[in-house]
Each structure stands twice: as C-alpha cells, then as structure tokens.
Write a protein that binds this DNA or RNA. Structure first.
Lengths: 341, 341
DNA sequence: ATGAAAGCGCTAACAC
DNA sequence: GTGTTAGCGCTTTCAT
C-alpha cells in the first residue's frame, strides 16, 4: 500500500544512501561478475537495499537492453477445459527457468480480442509469442503474428513455415488400441469424433496400425462417429454392442463417460462386459469414473514447455517444422482380459 | 520474424519519415486532444506509421509515466479445475476495459514460486495484485504483498484489512436447498465436505436457513460429511437412503456425480427416486450427467471481475472489507416433485 | 501549429 | 575499485 505514492525508491536513492554511485549499485544488484567491488561498498549497498526496500524497475532495465523478458501466450479458451491451463503451466515453468515472464491473453476465439492481445504483446516488445488452441487443429493466423517470433502450440498453419508443436495423434491412437489388444481383445470398437480434425484422422490411423501390428483385421463396421461428448458416447453404445464388440476405444474421456452410462443402462458392466479406453486423461473424469478409466494422456504441459524451448531457440525445430509430442498411456481399471471366445 | 534484428522502428523514425518532430508524432499517436496538429502533418504521420509498421513501446511509455498498466494475478492452481480460468477471464475482461493487462502467475501453492511471482510483479511496477485461490478459503499472505495494492479473490485473510471478494456461500446453500424444497421435498439430505472451510460452514447454514424458512424441522441425521469428490458421493448414498431421504444437496458437482453412480447401483433413478442438487456448476460434469444436474453456480468470472474493480477503485469495498458475490441457481433435470407421502 | 529539450530508472562504456 | 556519462523510447512542459 503506497500511502500517497511517496515516489518509488530508485537506484539513485540506494546509491545515495550507501554513499556510492549508481553504477556500483547496478553492479551489485545484478551480481556482475566482471566488476570488482570492494567488500565494504558491497555490504553498504546491500544494507541500503534492505533498508529502503529497493526493487529494480524491470521496465527501465528492459528499455535500456532493447528487449523485454516477456513471452506472449495467446489462448483461445482458458476456462472451458483444463487444457489451456496445462499449456500455461508448462510454458510458464520453462519460461521462468530462463528468466522470462508470460504475458497471457485469453481470446475465446474472438478475432477482435486476438488482434488486441497481439497488439498489446507487440507493444510490450515480447521476445515472441506462443499461439495456442485448446484442441489440436489447423488455425489461420492473425495478421500481427508475422511481426514477431512465433510458435504454434497444439495447432498448426499448413500454408506457413511457422514451427508448431502438436500431440502425436497417431502414436496416441496406437497406444489406446494396444491397451485393448494387450488384454486380448480382438473385436475392438472405436468411437471417433464427428469433427474433422487431426485427432479424428490421426487416432483412426493409430488404431488401424495397432490392429495391423497385432494381426487383427480391420472391420469398418466397428468404427462409428459420434459427438465428442457424453451424449455422443451414450448414443453410440447400442450400435457397438450390436456388433459384438468386447472393448472400445473412445475419442475422449467425455465420450467414455457417456458410454459408461449407456453400458449400465443395459445392465452391463465395465470392464467385465465391455473394456473401455478413453483419451485426454481429463482428471475430473478419468480418475473418478467407476471404474477409473484407462486412457491416453494429451501432453499439454509438455506442449507448452516445448513451445517456449522452440521459441527461445533451445531446441531445434523438427525438419518439417512440426514437433510431435508423445501421448503416454495411463492405465487404470477399465480394461481387463477379453472374455474367452 | 525480425531478420537479423534491424532495430525496431521508433518514434524518431516515424518523425523523420514524416518530416516532423517526435513530439508531434507523440501527439498524434496518443490522439492528444489539447494538441493542435495540422491536418496535413497529421496525415503524413499516419502514413509514416503505416508504412514503417510502427508500434509504440509500452515500456518506454510506462517508464516515463511512472507506473505500468499491469495488474498481477497470482493463482494457486490454474489447471486442476476450470475455476482459476474463469477468474482470469473475468479479471482480464475488466482489466482490458480499463487499459490494463494481466500478468498471470501460477504458483501451484508453492511458496517459493509465490515469492518469485510477487517479486516479478513488483519489479514490473504493477498497478496492484489480485491474489486468488481455486477454492474459497483463508490464506496467509506472502510477505511482498504489502508492498503494493492488493485484493484477495476467492479467499481472505482474517487478520488483515485487505479487501476480499468471495462467493456468498450461505446464500448459495439456501438456493440449493430451496430448489429441493420448492419441488415439495421435505426430507432433504446434505452431503457436506469433510474439509473445514467457508463452504462447509456457509452452505450448511444456508441449508438450515432455507429449511427454517419453509417450516421444515432440521434433522442432523440428514447431514453427512464426505470427501468432496465422486468417491465421497458414492459412499454417502447408502447412509442417506437408509434415512428416507427423497432429495439431496451435494457439496459439489463431483460429489453429485458419485452419488448418481451409487443411486444407479441400487437400481434407483435420479430424479424419480432421488432428486439431487449439486454445487459449482462445473460444466463438464453438471451439464452432461444423466440426467443433467441442477446445481448452484460458483461465480468465478464475477469474482475476478469484481476483484479488478475493487483494485482500481471503481467500486467501493464493502464495510467489512469483504464483498460477497451471489451464487445463482442453475436449473436442469435432476429435481422433480417429491413422491407423495 | 510545431519543435527543443529535460528527464523517467537503468546499463554499459570508459575514465580515473 | 568506483564514478561519469551517454543514451534506451517516450511524454511533456515551454518556446517559438
């Protein structure tokens, strides 16, 4: 609480109090190695800093150095899912590790908000910006983006060469199918999403690859599309059960949750009558369904982290400019051995 | 993408290109009203800005004006629930409306991270900081907080006079109980949390007040404590059903989700055999359970919004320094009339 | 109607 | 070892 703003204490105040010059203060504040400062002056400065409660002015510092320590992060949906939150966490952790601070902007997909956010970031002379989406998809980039370094997180722009870090959907789909295959299932349903997307195509491909790998013939009748939420999962149950499926891979955990309901409604049980695997590893759902859901995790934290590493030039962008991050399987209790036969 | 950093374009560049002085440029950039600039010079400046792609340097601007346009927001859990996200949204929307930008820091409750975040904010000379918690609780404040203006969001510190904005738990509890009462229920169970907290006490009090209001005697046997998650709800079902309850108010939506499972396990149905009301209005759960859950919304967006208004002095702090925000009921399909008798 | 010049708090040569 | 000084990009009197 500043009582009537008694003017913030500056480096000059410290210098004066310690009886030294500002450059001496600057040296001790920044712990400059090359600088030879007398042990005695050093201590006087430290004490003055303590006593006056001096805080360096980051803006003055950045101004003189010509660049700021900000990294912008624009997110299209910060509250509807935990996904953006994880991206932010990952990005922030890595950014801080390198002395950077995140400038977060939530745009809710609103174009005006996006432009405003970008302008704000550009005016703060950010080191670069991370442009992220809450679900993996292609995006068209806002104009201002080309004015700074940029990396796309959980999204991509096919017509540009901007580096992007995205989840490896096909490897994820493979993992999901393998969990079922490993338990001995052979008739494995797949509830895919109705939304055209990398997730739709990638996971399907992964599912097919895993089937091939295991020598199980692909049966198109076993894959059905449904809205990627609980209602979609619920409605898909009948179709799948009719086809003699013993396990099903759901496009996401919400679908799996709806599917649980449908299974129960028919007096059946997970996993004994039907084994199920989800996708996303959305904690509130997956870890607390009955039984807890085996699923494949979407690596949002790692996506954010990898995004800043790429931006900062700590990692080399992959040849195609696209970095694919792994989706690890998470084993819980919704998969058991297939019934014999 | 800066190709080999050709030095950012500054106001001087614009001035030069337009054949005017920097102060003239400054005036047109900021649309200064008192300044009389010739229509002609004005246009030359505009054009130069366009052509050079000039962006004002926010840091230089803030530096000279002595204060920044940042508002710090420290959150203790940005990804585990959608709650922090909503707070951020509310705070950002209101902040932007007044020309401020949010400096978000996620601390995951880690004290070192908190100190670091605060130092970062202080060094950026934030206008003030919003200190928030993902669930309503008492907090002990990090040291640095007193160095700046501050308001607590979704939390409070009893020994200080720092203004706080929190949800009105008792009014919320009242709303929840009333939904059941209004449908004719008289034996209403309450699954409260095992965690001592404002939510625990407030919602219980609201529940009792609503009962009183309706002339229904309070029966202590009808309130049970349980872990505030699905498992807690599941386990509480038996206890409540034994006591002849026809409706139950759950401490939160996750508990309600677990309770649904328990009810089904007994071959019973929501809402016909048991009406249920949740709390939080956590979209993924409440809107997609079968049947969709009637609940009471926690006003996180409004909390964030009110927080910045308080910080900016746009609203007066309530007499006690604590602002209570309303928790509105959300009617869906988990409550119907009580069975006769 | 427009420009010159003095700083804002700090860093980095360079002087002593 | 420590001090002096010239800016960083901008706003803002105060001249003209």
């Amino acid at each position: 609480m500043d009582e009537s703003s008694p003017r913030a204490v500056t480096m000059r105040d410290v210098a004066q109090a310690a009886g030294v010059s500002v450059s001496t203060v600057s040296h001790v504040v920044n712990n400059k190695k090359g600088a030879r400062i007398g042990k005695d002056a050093w201590e006087r400065v430290q004490r003055a800093i303590e006593e006056l409660g001096y805080r360096p002015n980051a803006m003055a510092k950045d101004l003189v150095k010509g660049r700021s320590r900000f990294i912008g992060l624009v997110a299209d949906a910060i509250a509807s899912t935990p996904f953006a939150g994880q991206i932010i966490r990952g990005a922030q952790d890595e950014a801080w590790r390198h002395g950077y601070v995140l400038l977060v902007a939530n745009t809710e997909g609103n174009e005006a908000a996006e432009t405003e956010a970008l302008a704000m970031m550009l005016e703060h002379k950010v080191r670069g910006v991370l442009y992220s989406a809450w679900y993996h998809r292609e995006v068209e980039l806002p104009a201002g983006l080309t004015e700074t370094d940029c990396v796309l997180v959980n999204c991509f722009a096919s017509d540009s060469d901007i580096p992007a870090v995205v989840p490896d959907e096909v490897a994820g789909g493979r993992q999901a199918a393998r969990m079922l295959l490993a338990a001995g299932h052979r008739r494995i349903g797949f509830i895919n999403t109705t939304t055209p997307s990398p997730a739709h195509d990638g996971r399907l491909r992964g599912y097919r690859e895993a089937l091939d790998e295991a020598g199980v013939p692909f049966d198109p009748a076993l894959v059905v599309d449904a809205r990627p939420d609980q209602e979609g999962g619920f409605e898909a149950v009948g179709r799948l059960l009719d086809r003699g499926v013993t396990g099903v891979f759901c496009h996401n955990d919400r679908v799996a949750m709806g599917l649980y309901d449908g299974v129960r409604e028919r007096g059946l049980r997970v996993p004994d009558d039907l084994a199920v695997v989800g996708f996303d590893n959305q904690e509130v759902i997956a870890a607390h369904l009955r039984p807890p859901l085996s699923t494949v995790a979407l690596p949002h934290y790692e996506l954010g982290l990898a995004g800043v590493r790429l931006l900062l030039g700590l990692d080399e962008p992959a040849p195609g400019g696209r970095v694919a991050v792994d989706c690890p399987p998470v084993h819980r209790s919704s998969v058991t051995a297939a019934p014999p036969g």
